[in-house]
Design a protein around this nucleic acid. Structure first.
Lengths: 253, 253
DNA sequence: TAGTGGTCTAGACCACCCG
DNA sequence: GGGTGGTCTAGACCACTAA
């Protein structure tokens, strides 16, 4: 009776740790504040560092913490809402979109899934436009836009010419915009960042990302496919009528 | 010259392992096939079990593998496309939606973020409708729908009455559908499964999930908020005009 | 150069599933 | 009861950052 309650269903230590830390973050820390280092936190809670790290990893996944090698662990700001829905159904690069053209290259070697979506014949040439998206001064997404060469026949010469990289990208986008857009399609799924995307997003390879696959339809078929890779820790993707950013983050924990 | 190339930029072992395993999955395994157990795989690759597990975790995150305690690790089927966009902008529970009502309860204690979205006064009563979504016989999502009691004044008596649980849920939904829907709003972010959602989704607590926050507008304000929790390993959320499920999965790795 | 998080090891024990 | 994945430990070394 007077004894402390027994753990009838002992939850894992890291799970309990996560709860404790989460409450501490709410009450005792403010955004940007730096936490004690992992060795100290582990000692303070009386667990091995690996166990402590398991809790920190989950909190980082939920966007509560930010960890940087050589620097430390800080309290993350609320996730930023990023509009992904077609504000107006238009081509990439149209006025008002938030992406920066980076480069464009011609390639005959694209991911198998993209080749399927574009119904490419094996070895068919494709222009790959690389763009990046920045919000509040922070990189939030990297994108590869795949456009079959047959859809933008005049782009090839321009891409091969010795203009600077962003100009090459804009050339492809400009020609794409000449086509009549008949519709678009989106899917969101969880992935892990490729090495090059990770570098661009200022994360380590394998970091969790939200991958948005956009299909653009023109001429009765898929005229372009975009693979957009968003930082899952810092981004909330918004869709729908009301794109007012309330700055409110909702987590499932 | 004749030597094997040096690792100028030695990538982590688990990263290399992931690549090797991923290629093996493509070429030597078929969906549903069971892999050797972790101790054997670790021995085979000459690494510690923890390192091997780090690779497996990433592959599971990407939807390539499925691991079950007491059973083993199997090759996962391609992610299933789940339509999340408003096919037609309608209330939850309207004909044609894919959710099963489970229960409804009255509560005065809702997540802070939901309270903000609903502009609740402290302690204001809310009906919480619990629903679940099943596709291809597998549970893919769990949902909590929060409706301020003032928006559905007649539901209270019915929820209190001794009808069965799904009927309680349907009562709230029916009254909600009487209101005129003025619009909706969605956001997608990464989260980790709460213990109860995890159980319903047949996963362990903390499993990665895609959290969809939907706001329903009526009477000039937010009349309901839904928090839908989708299994991130098995689901691809689809939005947009063309909801034809091509069954194609695109990953960022 | 000192301090941080990231990777890795070689064990141990536990919770769960199935025959 | 035997085998699986899940949790946990107590170390070690490495890569990176900033003073």
């Amino acid at each position: 009776m007077g004894t402390t309650q027994l753990e009838t269903v002992p939850e894992p230590k890291y799970w309990h740790l996560k709860t404790v830390l989460s409450e501490a973050l709410d009450s005792e820390f403010s955004v940007g504040e730096i936490l004690p280092n992992e060795r100290e936190l582990a000692a303070r809670f009386g667990v091995a560092r690996a166990t402590l790290r398991q809790a920190l990893e989950q909190l980082e996944l939920e966007g509560r913490l930010q960890r940087r090698r050589g620097v430390g662990t800080t309290v993350a700001p609320p996730r930023v809402g990023v509009a992904v829905d077609p504000a107006h159904h238009t081509w990439p690069g149209a006025p008002g979109d938030d992406w920066q053209p980076v480069d464009a290259v011609a390639s005959r070697n694209v991911p198998a899934a993209v080749a399927r979506l574009l119904e490419l014949t094996p070895g068919e040439q494709v222009h790959v436009v690389h763009r990046s998206r920045v919000t509040h001064g922070q990189p939030v997404a990297a994108e590869q836009l795949y456009v079959p060469a047959r859809c933008v026949p005049e782009a090839e010469a321009a891409v091969g010419a010795a203009v600077d990289a962003p100009a090459r990208a804009r050339t492809v986008l400009r020609e794409l915009q000449q086509l009549e857009l008949e519709g678009q399609d989106r899917a969101v799924e969880l992935g892990s960042a490729r090495a090059d995307d990770a570098k661009e997003l200022d994360r380590l390879p394998g970091a969790p990302v939200l991958v948005v696959t956009t299909r653009y339809f023109a001429g009765g078929r898929t005229a372009a496919v975009a693979l957009s890779t968003y930082r899952a820790d810092t981004c909330r993707l918004t869709f729908g009528d009301n794109e007012t950013d309330t700055g409110v983050t909702v987590l499932a924990s």
